[in-house]
């Protein structure tokens, strides 16, 4: 099968990240599609389902020591209870939301960067709103 290897190339990853906190405005200028994947860590069970399902190989679970330095924000790994971090390549991600669909605990959401509305997050998945196994509900 190697001859017809049509797999998308692996995005480049680093093990010496410089972490910087930016605001929504910056992110909006840097990346074209205006929706962003977000993971709520409190219910993440680290099953790596999103890493497995991603057709573009753009989301990965790595150890916190992949981040070498942090500016203006807490360095992951400083807190001994920091176990793993998730990194996404926003230029490669197509927002296909397969990971949203795959997540068994439903903690991955596709939302807009910025302050959430006072009524709560409108992107939370419910029985008749969100993504369900390849279909937009």
């Amino acid at each position: 099968m190697a001859r017809t290897d049509a797999n998308p190339p692996m995005p480049e990853w680093s093990t010496e990240y410089q972490l910087v906190e930016v605001d929504a405005d910056y992110l909006g200028k840097a990346v074209k599609p205006k929706q962003f994947i977000h993971i709520d860590q409190s219910e993440c069970i680290m099953c790596e389902g999103c890493v497995d399902i991603c057709p573009w190989k753009c989301i990965h679970m790595v150890t916190p020591d992949a981040v070498a330095e942090a500016q203006g924000t807490e360095l992951p790994g400083e807190d001994p209870s920091d176990n793993v971090i998730f990194i996404i390549d926003d230029d490669v991600c197509t927002r296909c939301a397969l990971c949203v669909d795959r997540c068994p605990t439903g903690v991955i959401i596709l939302g807009k960067a910025g302050a959430p509305s006072p009524d709560g997050d409108s992107h939370t998945r419910t029985n008749n709103h969100g993504y369900g196994y390849g279909m937009r509900l």
Partner: peptide, 21 residues
Amino acid sequence: HTQRLLTVVKSGSIQEAKAAP
């Protein structure tokens, strides 16, 4: 590329994680 730190997960897991994907 623009790469974003999605989350830092606090609890332990049975999955093995490495520094590089």
